[in-house]
Design a binder for these strands. Structure first.
Length: 535
RNA sequence: GCGGGUGUAGCUCAGUUGGCAGAGCACAACGUUGCCAACGUUGUUGUCGAGGGUUCGAAUCCCUUCACCCGCUCCA
């Protein structure tokens, strides 16, 4: 399937539009149209129902180490800035960076040093990122090479005394980059922000800087104690949240796959450290099965377990659920969801302060004064088991899914072209969105076969009845075949047609989108029949 | 970020050397047919991605810019 066919259908039928399209669009932002909003909402509702509201905490589920509870949360997009400092998001990319155009390396602007060198009537700034003990030798060697000087002519090369920071150099054209062989390959410094910055308060200065959340997870961690204190949940239990997150993606691309504003469906599952590996296995398999149950083909999905050397040492496992999106090369997959074993990293961070992810065992990351680089809340986020009296910091399993990526995957999976006979028996191309009935935007369409002889009246009555239960659609215009095909493109699984016989014996036909087969049922049985089929 | 391509009606696209903005489909109304998109009649639809320049005149030539696609890079 070519991606542009799907993009075209999404636009034409109202699944997805480019954001701000009448002004030329804006990169990395997408809107859901009338059909798209129903589809995405159905997916989110299915997730919430299957994971949270429909969860039976009294019965041990297949594969689960024990029974468990599930609860929900909805926190703000803007949180205290300290949340992101402690979580590590702030440090990762709040810096000014320079890129080298030829070597493609990226440097922190303030960490590049160097000194001015003169030779052969030319003055260049030789930059380096090596340790201070080696910077003299490194710049010397590279300056010699640049000026094509032999060792015996070393006296032709003159250095100006001090090492300077790159931040003090005005003209990047004079700079020999740390790995470059020619001048002027470094870009001007650019601030890289994973996170969207915003300002709190109409007159705020720098102290009013806040961030739009890059993930919903932190809102769950910082509310962990609130949930414990306000409910009677006991470990093991999960807190679920759906909501918008924001990331300044470097390269938004591939339709909605890498959007800058996107919606997540996340669970933070808290459990005893001794059981965490079993829970990790459970969630990995549970989440994989969820996608196939809603119609993603198993052969286009993979569960990619991260290799040991990809893992943080505090994690005993991370797996990505990935889908073979049609815009990716054959054999490549795009991430729909990541399930990570995060140990006690997050809760401890919000207690003690930002932890150094490279330390083992985990230790506070300190600044140059030996103080915590980013202070935690100082609140006790450990859990006390009332039965055993044991007190510990729970471990966390995090199934983190992308609602928009899931929606895109379901759209890709559903797009189908087949051939069906027309009224003369000639085969005609048909585009049909084979969405699972549970997530289909419209569950059924109701048509009078013709617009006379009492058929519209009966059809409208059926429509009004069904509308109380499902999103259904009424259409009486034009040839019925055309109406069927329109619904095929919208992914409507069933079409109910009122014909001449209906008026006589109170029966209607139900047409199946995928097989085109029709069955005749009594009008009173339509609701039950559709409900049974939607599941 | 770099290189290449594309941008004209809701969709797919044509538009000659610079000379009145087009087609098919879709959509709407009426009629016809009466269960799988191509019937008839009538009708609607355009900042030619945006801004600037050249020109008597620009969809067309030049500059800038935005968006999308492909490849590389990135993926924190």
């Amino acid at each position: 399937m070519e991606m542009d066919k799907l993009v075209s259908l999404c636009k034409r039928r109202g699944f997805l539009f480019q954001s701000s399209e009448i002004y030329g669009g804006i990169q990395g932002f997408w809107d859901y149209g009338p059909l798209g909003v129903e589809l995405k909402r159905n997916i989110k509702n299915a997730w919430w129902h299957d994971m949270v509201s429909g969860h039976d905490e009294l019965t041990q589920l297949p594969g689960a180490p024990s029974t468990y509870e599930m609860t929900g949360l909805d926190c703000t997009i803007i949180m205290h800035p300290q949340v992101w400092k402690v979580s590590g998001h702030y440090d990762l990319f709040h810096d000014f960076m320079v890129d080298c155009r030829t070597t493609k390396r990226r440097y922190r602007y303030d960490q590049v040093r160097g000194r001015w060198a003169n030779a052969k009537g030319q003055r260049i700034f030789v930059a380096t990122i090596v340790e201070a003990a080696e910077e003299h030798e490194d710049t010397q060697r590279r300056a010699m090479k640049f000026f094509k000087l032999r060792a015996k002519n070393a006296t032709q090369l003159e250095f100006e005394d001090a090492f300077l920071s790159l931040t003090e150099i005005e003209n990047m054209q004079d700079v020999l980059g740390p790995d470059a062989k020619e001048l002027g390959t470094l870009t001007a410094p650019r601030e890289f922000n994973l996170m969207f910055k915003t300002i709190i308060g109409a007159l705020a200065g720098e102290e009013g800087t806040a961030f739009l959340r890059p993930e919903t997870a932190q809102g769950i961690f910082v509310n962990f104690k609130n949930v414990l204190d306000s409910t009677r949940v006991k470990l093991p239990f999960g807190i679920a949240q759906t909501g918008k997150s924001f990331r300044n993606e470097i390269t938004p691309r591939n339709f909605t796959f890498r959007s800058r504003e996107f919606e997540q469906m996340e669970i933070e599952f808290f459990c005893h450290p001794d059981d965490s590996s079993k829970w990790y296995q459970y969630w990995r398999d549970r989440r994989m099965n969820w996608y196939t149950a809603l119609g993603l083909a198993a052969e286009r999905l993979i569960l990619r377990e991260h290799a040991e050397d990809e893992l943080s040492h505090y994690s005993t496992g991370t797996a990505d659920i990935e889908y073979a999106f049609p815009f990716l090369p054959a054999g490549e997959y795009g991430e729909l969801e990541g399930i990570s074993h995060r140990g006690d990293f997050d809760l401890r961070s919000h207690m003690e302060g930002k932890l150094d992810p490279n330390s083992n065992p985990l230790e506070l990351e300190l600044n140059e004064h030996g103080k915590p680089k980013h202070r935690g809340s100082g609140k006790d986020l450990s859990y006390r088991d009332d039965l055993t009296g044991e007190k510990y910091i729970p471990h966390v399993i995090e199934p983190s899914a992308g609602a928009d990526r899931a929606t895109l995957a379901f759209l890709c999976e559903a797009y189908t072209e087949d051939e069906q006979p027309d009224e003369k028996g000639n085969m005609q191309k048909r585009i049909v969105m084979k969405l699972h009935p549970r997530i289909a935007p419209i569950k059924a369409a109701i048509f009078p076969l013709v617009k006379k002889d009492g058929m519209p009246e009966l059809a409208k009555k059926i429509y009004a009845d069904l509308k109380q239960h499902f999103n259904v659609f009424y259409d009486e215009k034009g040839a019925v075949g055309r109406r069927y095909r329109r619904q095929d493109e919208a992914g409507t699984p069933y079409c109910i047609t009122v014909d001449g016989q209906s008026v006589a014996d109170n029966t209607v036909t139900i047409r199946d989108r995928d097989t085109l087969e029709q069955i005749r049922v009594r009008v009173e049985e339509v609701l039950a029949e559709i409900r049974k089929r939607i599941g």
